[in-house]
Design a protein around this nucleic acid. Structure first.
Lengths: 154, 154
DNA sequence: TTTAATTATACCGTACACGAATTAATCGTG
DNA sequence: CACGATTAATTCGTGTACGGTATAATTAAA
């Protein structure tokens, strides 16, 4: 159990807000990825979606949404753009026709060869070593899960 | 100096990516703020801009961009919306007419009375105490600054 | 077993976020 | 002083994000 929050100790500057630091760090990473992803003609969310598919192809949209922590009304148009770029295919489920399954094309799979180098470059921009990053990832993912759980509708 | 990055140890799942965890945590915070900000008819970026002005009124747009870590082409329309909501005023600089200075209206200043409660609610959703949050903020802001410095054009 | 509720995805409108280009004002150097 | 370079802010186009709503398919219930 965390200590109760003391009103007088609340951060007042955005520089001390956890949410603002995460918000601005997100933009910073986006800008760091941009020049590399531009060469692949991809956006950051598109790249993340592909990364998920490289690990597990053939997910349906709902599963992809869960992994991306995004709503389907965000993911649907993103996938349509990836499809029009020729990197994925979308196919209605046969058992349940409400579902749409997403699979990589050869073009989408081929992009994976750039992944390790991109990851390496990004990690180097952080100035952190893998050990420190891993600890930070655990901390932030735990924080995110707490916020999502507290925010979720029952 | 961080340890050199070993290619074989690179994270391969997005769940291990520092950028993805920050990206998804950002959305989680946005969703946590939403219901509270909706009552004030504000978005999260608008709320952050106001928070900066509550601390230091009368900044020009460039200074606001620096503090927000955003480009002026994002901030300009955001401020126009805050102006049309009646929370701020915009005035051309007299010495340098290229600059535009932003100041709070009584309406914009009045919103500040909700701030402490909102901050408290958000902190409680994290399940972290202030001490742990402060350490995490230092870690993430340092990371962000590293990424921004590494990405900046000379 | 027809209807009612739920589920999976899509569509629409609003608001970021940013690259690229634009405009207007100021500065720098001859 | 002049005029090209720089700077501050804006405009525009594309792509997220999400609330709200719609649609069609599946499931549950009366």
């Amino acid at each position: 159990m965390p200590k109760p929050v003391a009103i007088d100790d609340l951060p007042k500057s955005v520089e001390e807000f956890i949410c603002f630091n995460i918000y601005s760090a997100g933009h910073a990473f986006n800008r760091a990825y941009s020049p590399m992803l531009k060469e692949l003609n991809l956006t950051y969310p598109q790249y993340i979606a592909l990364t998920i598919l490289w690990e597990e192809d053939g997910l349906n949209i709902g599963e992809l949404c869960d992994r991306l922590r995004l709503e389907s009304n965000t993911v649907t148009p993103l996938l349509k753009r990836l499809e029009s770029l020729g990197h994925i295919k979308r196919k209605r489920g046969e058992i349940d026709e409400r579902q749409v399954f997403v699979s990589l094309t050869p073009s989408g799979r081929a992009l994976q060869k750039h992944a390790a180098n991109i990851t390496k470059c990004i990690i180097e921009t952080t100035g952190y070593d893998l050990e420190k990053l891993e600890a930070l990832v655990k901390n932030i993912s735990n924080l995110r899960d707490n916020v999502m759980r507290a925010t979720a509708v029952p």
